[in-house]
Structures are given as structure tokens and as C-alpha cells.
């Protein structure tokens, strides 16, 4: 039976620097394998949709505008993503992965969590198609 068994720990801590960080001014470097936001490269994609099929949280949708010309748009719902990395694992052409740089999530509204990946003109075309009623089925 002793008293103050953790006293030495406390004393030692007086001579250590603070372990808290002044985030966002100071950021902890993320490890290399850190699973942040999904990134996608339409140039490598073949539109096989294996990534979409296995997504446990239905966070990704692939819109094919022209398969032969590699015109794909990936709709990524960041807020639904569970960062499991199954999509990246399924991809045989390594056209997607989880970034270890881009991981900060804060937004004032939910719309900001929906990200479109693809060539600029493809995204524009897709969004125009959505606004037209008959093309509604295409983005499903």
C-alpha cells in the first residue's frame, strides 16, 4: 500500500511540452496510409462499376456519358462515405484511392459534401442532363 503512486508521472510532465496542438494553425501530419477523401481519375476508368457495387454506404455513383471516350463522372457523397477503402481495393485499374492529404470535413451545408469527379465539360454536361426531366434516368 502506497500513496501518490502517480506523483512521479505528474512531476515529469511539468518538464514536457504540451501535447495539445493549436489546430488549425498546426496540423498533425497524417500517416501515408491514412484514408481521407476518395480521389478518382476518369482516364484510367473502364466503367466496370465494381467500386459502386461493393460500396457499403452507397457513397459513390458512376455516371457514364461515353464509355469509349472515357467520359465518366463520379459522384462522391463524402458525408455517406465510411472510409473503408473497399472501392479502391476493388478497382483493377487503380483509378481511385483514398487521399492522405485531403481529410478535413467541415461545411455549412450538406451540398458541399457532394463532389463530382471528372473532366469539367463532362460534369457540366451531366448536371445539365439532370436538370432536363427526360434524362433523369441516366444518373441513376
Amino acid at each position: 500500500m502506497k500513496f501518490g503512486t502517480m506523483f512521479t508521472d505528474i512531476l515529469a510532465s511539468f518538464f514536457k511540452k504540451n501535447s495539445t496542438q493549436l489546430y488549425p494553425f498546426e496540423k498533425n501530419p497524417t500517416p501515408e496510409r491514412f484514408r481521407g477523401n476518395l480521389y478518382y481519375d476518369p482516364a484510367k476508368c473502364t466503367g466496370c462499376c465494381l467500386c459502386v457495387k461493393d460500396c457499403p454506404s452507397k457513397a459513390i455513383e458512376l455516371v457514364t456519358i461515353d464509355r469509349a471516350a472515357k467520359r465518366f463522372v463520379l459522384k462522391y457523397h463524402m458525408d455517406r462515405c465510411v472510409y473503408c477503402g473497399q472501392c479502391a481495393l476493388n478497382c483493377r485499374f487503380k483509378c481511385m484511392g483514398m487521399s492522405n492529404k485531403d481529410w478535413e470535413h467541415a461545411a455549412l451545408n450538406k451540398e458541399e459534401f457532394l463532389v463530382y469527379y471528372g473532366k469539367e465539360e463532362d460534369v457540366r454536361e451531366m448536371l445539365e442532363n439532370i436538370s432536363k426531366p427526360p434524362a433523369e434516368s441516366e444518373h441513376k
Partner: peptide, 20 residues
């Protein structure tokens, strides 16, 4: 986090093996 990429739900497993 360093091994798997996540801190809580590590998702280290995959059916038939592991990812990391």
C-alpha cells in the same frame, strides 16, 4: 492509424484476407 489508415473502424479485413 499508421497500419490501417483509420483510427477506429480500421477496415483492415476484407473477405479472404486483409488490406494492409
Amino acid at each position: 492509424e499508421q497500419i490501417t489508415g483509420n483510427r477506429v473502424n480500421y477496415s483492415a479485413n476484407v473477405l479472404g484476407g486483409v488490406k494492409c
